[in-house]
Write a protein that binds this DNA or RNA. Structure first.
Lengths: 160, 160
DNA sequence: CGGCTATACTTGAGGTCGCAACGATCATAG
DNA sequence: CTATGATCGTTGCGACCTCAAGTATAGCCG
């Protein structure tokens, strides 16, 4: 049925075009954002992402597994990432009293400070590289469209 | 001016919301796409990407540096990626006669076959995970919006 | 020609991340 | 109380990718 060979990838379909632009834009923007974040604050984009989650979490602490799910890294990735943040003194590890399996990550005072410092320049960078390309209406449009994309491995990613 | 502290990242601005969704969606979708591609065809998403560039290139060959630029990897990344593809017999290396510095990557017959095999399932996967979320009009909208994002390090990424 | 700079590519070292396997803890049911 | 199964976390291993440095070629100018 749809096995017709297409001459170029761009000509194939708007979906593919959009997908390719999505891929390329991600590569370019995250590379630049990460470079700036690292140069100014010695943080990876993932580091920053995790710190920000903690910053806005109740009591500024979260279970490691919840961090993993919220930033879409695996549990092992979170372990190693937090190792680094702990060594830098930005995060503390706290065991849960009621459940011996879970370990919390808690933002330290230094961590709070770091987030607030980094956030300022990072917000500006995101605005420059991403946001400034769109007006208010387009931003909402884009957010709405991107919000439909799946976040879980394969199946539904609703509120459940 | 815009230094007011915001209570949650979602509340801050549509641009940030869009950016976060962009980040998360990329992580989820590429992970799934890569897993499927690897399971069915033993290819990385980057492998596939490079093979596809070659597939549509004149004479199915490209200079390594041009591959790097088109898929947004560094030159060293391309060297190692092509090493793998050469070992698999999907790509051949060819020196340029007029310029001793450049080395071409040429798609072999096996490479052509591989692309055509992988393309079928990959297109379906992209459609399922990405394209199917949007109708025709939305795809064009999305492609247009994403097309405004920068592809070069910092500055302009126009046709110059 | 000899020097100088730019470009194409490769290599060594290091960082980030996922997968799979493992240990520890909890919850449930017999 | 013990067996079973699920959940949380860590670790060994390997893949992928970047940065910085190094090699080789090309082009330009004195």
């Amino acid at each position: 049925m749809s096995s017709q060979v297409l001459t170029t990838q761009e000509a194939s379909a708007p979906a593919l075009t959009a997908w390719l632009r999505f891929l390329r834009a991600h590569a370019a923007i995250t590379r630049e954002l990460s470079a700036r974040l690292e140069a100014l604050h010695e943080l990876t984009l993932s580091d920053y992402d995790v710190l920000l989650q903690l910053y806005f979490a109740p009591e500024r602490r979260m279970r490691r597994i919840d961090i993993a799910r919220s930033v879409l890294l695996t549990a092992s990735g979170i372990t190693r990432l937090l190792d680094g943040l702990e060594r830098c003194g930005l995060v503390d590890k706290a065991r849960c009293e009621s459940d011996g399996r879970v370990a919390y990550a808690v933002l330290t005072d230094a961590g709070v400070k770091k987030v607030e410092e980094a956030r300022e320049s990072h917000l500006a960078d995101v605005e420059e590289l991403f946001g400034s390309r769109f007006d208010r209406h387009e931003r909402e449009q884009l957010a709405a469209l991107l919000g439909r994309l799946p976040l879980a491995p394969t199946s539904d990613a609703c509120s459940s």
